[in-house]
Simulated assay, not measured.
Amino acid sequence: MFVRRIATALAIVLAGYGTAAAQAPTRIEQFKAWGAYSYKSNGGTVCYVLSVPTAKEPPAVDHGDIFFIVSQRPGQNISYEPQAMMGYKLKDGSKVNVTIDSKNFVMFTKDKAAWVENAAEEPALVAAMKGGSSMTVKATSARGTPTSYTYSLSGISAALSKIETCK
């Protein structure tokens, strides 16, 4: 099941970046809960780390495939961009809240994805991920259902280190 989720995630990532000329992603290495991946797109390399939640709330709802990704696209001057990807459409105008320890981060939503609202806070979110043990992501579906996901942060530092020199 994990392999199917990762394959789905890779397809979603490629589609999300408009990568018609992209090659299939390659898994670089798995670091506990986080995997490091790369693919070629328009002559450049995109690297990212990805994980799936360890818990989903509410349990009786079909959440689809849920992922949290941190990508690095050196050719576009993008370094460590966090993104939450849901298996359902998010409520228009809603926010996604990410909590690590006592630190909170707000993400804006579009369709099935969310990004840090204030891009200047991206490094702080990544630093919190590296220093934390678990992360909670709360969202609201287009149907108005509140959802919550728990991610293990075990392996995130090693996975991010692996893609640090992405070229």
Rank of each mutant, 00 (worst) to 15 (best):
A114D: 04
G16V: 03
L10N: 15
S102T: 13
K110S: 12
N104E: 14
V3N: 09
E81V: 03
R27A: 11
P58M: 10
A139W: 00
T45R: 13
R5F: 01
R143I: 03
G64M: 07
S154T: 09
T140Y: 00
A158N: 11
G16C: 02
S94W: 04
E29V: 07
G144D: 06
F105D: 03
V70N: 07
I6T: 11
S154G: 04
G75T: 11
E117L: 09
I66C: 02
Q30N: 14
I28L: 15
V70G: 05
V116G: 00
P25G: 07
A15E: 14
D65H: 10
D92S: 15
A36W: 04
K103Q: 14
A113K: 14
V49A: 10
M1D: 11
T136V: 14
R27V: 09
S148H: 01
S102M: 05
V70F: 02
L125I: 06
K56D: 00
Y48N: 01
V70M: 06
A55S: 14
K40S: 10
T145S: 02
S133L: 00
G75I: 08
V137Q: 01
R143K: 13
V70C: 03
S148K: 11
A22M: 02
W115P: 01
V126P: 01
N118P: 00
S102Q: 13
G43L: 06
N104K: 14
K130T: 02
T136Q: 14
S148A: 11
K40L: 12
V46W: 01
T19I: 00
T26W: 04
T145V: 15
M1K: 08
L50M: 12
Y88P: 02
T109L: 05
G43P: 13
A7E: 10
K112C: 03
L90N: 06
N42D: 12
A114W: 03
A60C: 01
I163E: 06
A24T: 13
I69M: 12
A36S: 15
E57Q: 14
